[in-house]
């Protein structure tokens, strides 16, 4: 996994609440192998008008926000299904960090597994950043994961409250399975005690 330590990039506001994973990545594309690149499926249906053209109103379609690596989203972002394709679609589109007032839980944990930062900020802060990104000519944000800080293009510094483990994984680009297998002995011990106590479960 690619480490995420510091990032300065264009950022795109998406002031919509309850964006679900069906909108992020419609179910009919789940069967596509990752090798095809999932960027083409990101927000596939909601970024288009009824006649299939890219809608100029959708922020991600605007030139001003192209190549953004940071998304500033609305509350309950990524709710719904557990499909990790929603994260792949964001990742393959270049995104590395998402800020929102709240996230769908499965989505947030899928993000971490792929080295993508999700951080909660209160609704007022999100609103302010979104407004700033929309009005400024240079919609840029800087993130410092180690310092737990977000700096807006106007220079405002906002503290982030990251989970220590999340921070550790992001900075070191850790493969979580390797990390957990360091506890292999503990798992084996647990398993043997557990099977004695509840013999019917795994026999």
């Amino acid at each position: 996994m690619e480490p995420l330590i510091k990032l300065t990039s264009r950022a795109v506001p998406l002031p919509l609440a309850n964006i679900n994973t069906d909108q992020l990545f419609p179910a009919r594309f789940i069967k596509k192998p990752r090798a095809v690149g999932y960027a083409q499926y990101l927000f596939h249906d909601i970024r288009r008008t009824d006649d299939g053209q890219l809608s100029t109103e959708f922020p991600l379609n605007q030139e001003k926000f192209s190549e953004s690596k940071i998304l500033v989203a609305g509350p309950n972002f990524g709710s719904g299904s557990s499909r990790e394709g929603a994260v792949y679609a964001l990742y393959d589109s270049g995104f590395r960090a998402i800020f929102a007032p709240s996230f769908g839980e499965i989505f947030a944990s899928n993000c971490l597994k792929n080295g993508m930062l999700t951080a909660r900020l209160n609704a007022d802060a999100i609103h302010q950043i979104q407004t700033e990104l929309t009005t400024t000519e240079n919609p840029e944000l800087s993130i410092d994961v180690a310092e737990e800080a977000l700096i807006t293009s106007a220079g405002t510094k906002i503290g982030l409250d990251l989970d220590p483990f999340q921070k550790h994984c992001l900075i070191n680009g850790l493969n979580e399975i390797d990390l957990s297998l360091e506890f292999d002995d503990a798992i084996t011990q647990f398993e043997s005690d557990y099977r004695k106590a509840f013999p019917w479960i795994t026999s």
Binding site: I106, S109, N110, K113, E176
Partner: peptide, 20 residues
């Protein structure tokens, strides 16, 4: 509870999951 594919791989390999 539901999990995404990275966590599915984690369970396949370790029979465990990290959870807060």
């Amino acid at each position: 509870f539901g999990i995404g594919s990275s966590e599915v791989a984690h369970v396949l390999a370790t029979q465990t999951l990290w959870r807060s």
